[in-house]
Amino acid sequence: MTQRFVRMTNRLIAAGLTATVMIGAPAPALAATQWTVVDEDSRLGFEATQQGGEFEGRFESFDADLRFSADDLPGSRFDVRIRTGSVETGSSQRDSALPGEDWFNVDAFPEATYVADEITSTAEGYEAAGTLTIRENTHPVTLPFTWETDGNRAFMDGSVVIDRTRFGVGQGDWSDPSVSDHEVRVVVDLTLSKAQ
């Protein structure tokens, strides 16, 4: 009888400890929201200078896996894949040259990617620390951006200046900065909808 009583007491103590641990355990982490790009209201583009004249361009085709919640920055991440052959600048001569070997060389490198899995808040908004890959050249790029949420919609705006030559973009005569400036501003202007 004594041994049975001891076993029952031990079981009750174990159950009580388990309940205490469960009650004191932190709540599960929030899952960052997945967002879908609203193509017709979004722009992924760039601003550059050629022979002293500024021009703008955009990529008409890209896929973006965007997971973002201000309450779950550790769970937020961006994974963007850009089809470089979809570039448009409004100039037929430039648009026919950019997919070529000296520039994006789309036959060999049809996609550029940007992957960021470290997103932090700043005084102005947020920063995404990631890596940009163009023509198999990968370098760290930190993108400052703002994010506004309105119900099931969100609006992301950001820009960052990169040196195109680090990614092998603009070779041969185009590597001369007096012909085409090395600095290019990448512009992100996205309208997003909450994924269902």
Rank of each mutant, 00 (worst) to 15 (best):
R185S: 15
A48F: 14
T2Y: 14
D163V: 14
L30T: 13
T146K: 08
T191S: 07
A108E: 15
A116R: 05
R67Q: 09
A108K: 15
G158Y: 05
L44E: 01
A15M: 13
F145M: 07
A154H: 03
R94W: 00
S92P: 06
R83G: 14
A32V: 03
I23G: 01
A195C: 02
L192I: 03
A128G: 01
G52K: 14
T133Y: 01
V6Q: 11
A31K: 08
G172L: 05
F109W: 12
T131M: 08
P28G: 03
F55W: 15
V87L: 06
S175G: 08
E47Q: 12
M8L: 13
S193H: 04
D150K: 01
E136S: 15
E127F: 04
G168C: 14
G172D: 12
I23T: 14
A32H: 00
F68V: 07
S61H: 12
S92W: 05
R77E: 10
R11D: 09
M22E: 03
T113W: 00
E183W: 02
G53V: 13
V141R: 13
G158I: 06
I13G: 09
T142N: 13
M8S: 10
F78N: 00
R164W: 09
G52I: 11
P74L: 09
E56V: 09
I162H: 02
A29D: 05
A64I: 04
F78S: 00
L143A: 02
L143F: 01
A70N: 05
L98P: 04
Y126G: 00
R4C: 03
T36K: 12
L30F: 09
S92T: 10
V115W: 01
G125C: 02
F155Q: 06
S76I: 01
T36H: 01
E136R: 14
Q34A: 11
V37T: 07
M22Y: 06
L143Y: 00
Y114Q: 08
A32Q: 04
T84A: 10
G130Y: 09
V187Y: 10
G45M: 07
T20K: 08
E88W: 12
A31P: 03
G158E: 03
D173S: 11
L12N: 05
R166L: 15
D189E: 14
M8P: 00
E183K: 14
T138S: 15
F68T: 05
R4N: 09
A15D: 07
G151H: 11
Q196F: 05
A116M: 04
T191A: 10
R94E: 11
A27C: 03
G75S: 10
E136L: 11
E136M: 08
V115D: 08
E148P: 00
S159E: 14
G52N: 13
G75E: 06
G85V: 05
V179S: 06
E111C: 01
E56P: 00
S121D: 10
F167P: 08
N10E: 13
P140S: 13
F59I: 06
L66Q: 02
T20E: 05
F104Q: 04
E101H: 09
V106Q: 05
S121H: 02
T9W: 08
A154M: 04
T131Q: 11
S96H: 07
Y126T: 01
P140C: 14
